[in-house]
Amino acid sequence: MNHSSGSTIKPVVLGVGGCSGSGKTTLARELAAQLDAVLFPLDFYYRDLAHLSREERDHYNFDHPESLEHDLIVQHVEQLRQNKSIDRPNYDFNTHSRVKDVTDHLEPQRFIIVEGILALHYVNLTPLYDLTVYVDAPHDVCLTRRIYRDTRERGRTEESVREQFETYARPMADEYVLPSRDHADLKVNGTEALDWSIEAVLAELRRRNLLTLA
């Protein structure tokens, strides 16, 4: 079945971007909970690196725009916008490979929240958004949060996280992520209280008459 419960209301699509560790994922998750939205993290769309050696995978540049299968991202966001369901790929961060024959079936909802470091970067993706939000945070804050997350959730050492940050994440952020701020309708501070950022986004949705539920 391609369509959700007979809905003809066009979904509202939010794009939430910002550097890794800026707080964008936390903001997107909380917004998704409050709006009963479909959460669409770009992280599921990393290219499958199963053909590479473990060492090659560990030194792969995951912060470059080409690391994501962006054509499939655009296709899936477009389908959700058209009230069609999708089967989203699954990604294993420990092996840097796509989980074979396992997808997540997503039905469209009134709100769809696309989030990722490059969510506001791709020129064929940004026109699909009804509202774009950039979460700003200094590099040192992002690194501290990355170390905390990756050592606990992804089995990394602090040294490897720091090395990856300096080699890939920081230069790629400077080249691709920070310029995407210019595409944002709204900028929030990732070091301030989460409640303020949420209220700022909801206020902007109200201002644009996008919060009306049918």
Rank of each mutant, 00 (worst) to 15 (best):
Y60P: 00
I9D: 03
D101L: 12
D130C: 04
H96G: 01
L202I: 05
P65Y: 12
P41I: 05
D92S: 11
D174G: 12
E115C: 05
I198A: 03
I112N: 00
S20F: 06
G21E: 04
D43H: 10
T144R: 13
Q79R: 15
V141L: 11
F44E: 01
I9M: 06
L210E: 00
G155L: 08
S160R: 12
S20I: 11
G18P: 01
L31V: 03
T212W: 11
N83T: 12
D104W: 09
R47F: 04
N189H: 12
A184K: 02
Y134G: 00
A203P: 01
R154F: 10
S4F: 13
R145V: 08
A50Q: 12
T151N: 06
P171T: 13
L128S: 04
D174K: 14
A137T: 10
T126H: 01
L143R: 09
R54W: 11
A193I: 13
A33Q: 15
D43M: 07
N61I: 07
V13Y: 07
D104A: 14
Q109W: 08
Y46A: 00
P65F: 12
A50C: 08
M172E: 02
S97T: 15
F44T: 02
R29S: 06
A28D: 02
L178C: 02
H121S: 00
V188C: 04
V102Q: 14
D36F: 08
H51F: 13
H105Y: 14
D174L: 14
L39V: 03
T167W: 10
K84G: 03
V133N: 00
D140F: 10
R57K: 15
E107R: 12
E204K: 14
H139R: 10
R146Q: 06
P108M: 06
N124G: 03
E153L: 11
E192F: 13
Q79E: 09
E158S: 13
V161C: 05
S22Q: 06
T103R: 15
Y129T: 01
A50Y: 07
E30S: 05
K10I: 14
Y91D: 01
I73A: 00
L49T: 10
M172S: 01
D195M: 05
L80M: 05
E158H: 09
D92E: 10
V161P: 01
D58H: 12
D182Q: 15
D150E: 13
P171D: 12
D36K: 14
F40A: 00
N94W: 07
A193M: 08
P127H: 11
T25L: 06
D36P: 00
D195H: 13
L27Q: 01
L35I: 06
H51C: 08
F62V: 01
I73E: 00
S160V: 04
P108T: 12
R207I: 05
V74H: 04
P65D: 03
L39S: 02
I147R: 04
D136W: 11
S180R: 00
V12Q: 03
L31A: 03
D130Y: 08
G17S: 04
D71W: 09
S67H: 09
E55Q: 15
C142D: 03
I112A: 02
P138K: 10
D104Q: 14
L27V: 05
C19S: 15
E78Y: 10
R145K: 14
L205F: 09
P138D: 04
R170I: 09
I9F: 10
I112H: 03
W196C: 04
T26P: 04
I198M: 02
T157F: 12
C19G: 15
I112L: 07
F93T: 04
F111H: 03
D87Q: 14
H51A: 12
